[in-house]
Design a binder for these strands. Structure first.
Lengths: 139, 139, 139, 139
DNA sequence: GTGGTCTAGACCACG
DNA sequence: GTGGTCTAGACCACC
């Protein structure tokens, strides 16, 4: 279980597959699911697990290396950088804050009233909470 | 001023230009900025106004026709369908609800605690409100 | 009643408006609703009656003149040619035969079985008969 | 032969080329010539085969995607949706029924007697049948 | 390789 | 004048 990553990839999500992989690895590190110094699955292994093209996995890994999250160990593979967990937590916070703010601004710009927006948010919060709960249960 | 539509197109937005046009028209109808039965600017006119290719505008209009929002008046132009305003309001509601829910679910999946999420939302709400206010003032 | 033509124009029919006018005049002559030597309404009159562009009516009349169905009377208007009724009957027959054959051939080419086609025809016949009846009643 | 689609495109048909393509694919799926999950020829391939512009093919494919008939496989191509065959059969049925009914109603409205219409239909049926037979033979 | 977007420019049918 | 269709060719993201 520690060595197997349970990612959910949706190829028709609009979000590029390599982006989904990179983001989920980043979030897993931020949440402590993967620790500093730990090795991550090889490109081929991950590609088999997710049933996707190895090139796509490689691209996600490359991006994480560029961000300093992963470090290459010659002849061995990629490991999580020492400073990665803290950096990932900050990045996660930054990303989510930005996305939330963006969507709320969009709501305001679309001429919805304040009441309608807060209503949508409240409903969205409870639904998302329910979804998250059922997902955890289902896994 | 009543006859001029103030659209903001960003060609490098990721979102296709024709999509931006279609969405802004849809939102304008939902907000009552364009009424049922009203004619919308011709393909060529809109293309001139936005300084983009007429084909791109035509594609946006075609999509709105497929959605039943616009109706062709042969040899004259396109007008807003009678049922469009109500449909556009529902569609706008649906779109925003979906986006908000998506972001919130992402927040939950990113292993943020409930407290962190509600904090981000409240901050985002106030910031977005401030932005919207300043935008209205600035216009 | 003899002088007023009850045409049904559908601008969004796919079939051009001027075609609809020309065809309905042709069919009216074939059916005896308009007799040889009779004058037809002026372009302006017809345009007012149908609430369409005079140019469109003019184009229909021009086409009927080219076909020899209508003859210009200098300073007076257009009248139905002497040979028109018989010609219109033949033309009507030809048109309908062609259209029916065309649609049936399409049905065969679309890989429908013979049984499905005859079924569609039988249903279509009864429905069309019902529609025609209700239309006559409704008028 | 199993992998080659034999489409007949007539550029001067009145019916737009992209419509002809979309309809023939729809009919091919309805007839079982293309199965669910199967990949259809790429835009460029089809454009080469039919000697037309890739954009025209792309438009046909886009329309079929909007109708839920085709699904994009990112970076790979387009495949027939699982629900497409049944949907296409229903759509084909609907289209043909509508066309047949339209023609028959026209026949009634053109003041032909019921006897004349049924006569035209029976003749049309036998002729269309003969044409279809000779076409099959000739292929 | 794949589809998607955008531009530029031409031609047509219709009113 | 209007929208609709088609062509030609370019660039992009993704796998």
């Amino acid at each position: 279980m520690s060595n197997s990553l349970f990612f959910q990839i949706d190829p028709d999500n609009g979000v590029p597959v390599y982006e989904q992989i990179a983001r989920q690895i980043l979030f897993a590190i931020a949440a402590g699911g993967i620790l500093a110094g730990e090795m991550i699955p090889s490109v081929r292994q991950m590609a088999r697990d997710l049933a996707i093209n190895p090139n796509t996995v490689a691209r996600a890994y490359r991006q994480l290396q560029d961000d300093g999250v992963l470090e290459p160990i010659r002849g061995s593979g990629l490991q999580v950088a020492a400073a990665a967990p803290e950096a990932c937590r900050q990045e996660r916070q930054r990303l989510m804050k930005e996305r939330i703010k963006l969507v709320l601004r969009e709501a305001y710009q679309s001429q919805l009233t304040e009441a309608e927006i807060t209503d949508l948010v409240t409903r969205g919060l409870s639904e998302a909470r329910a979804d998250a709960a059922s997902l955890q249960k289902g896994s």
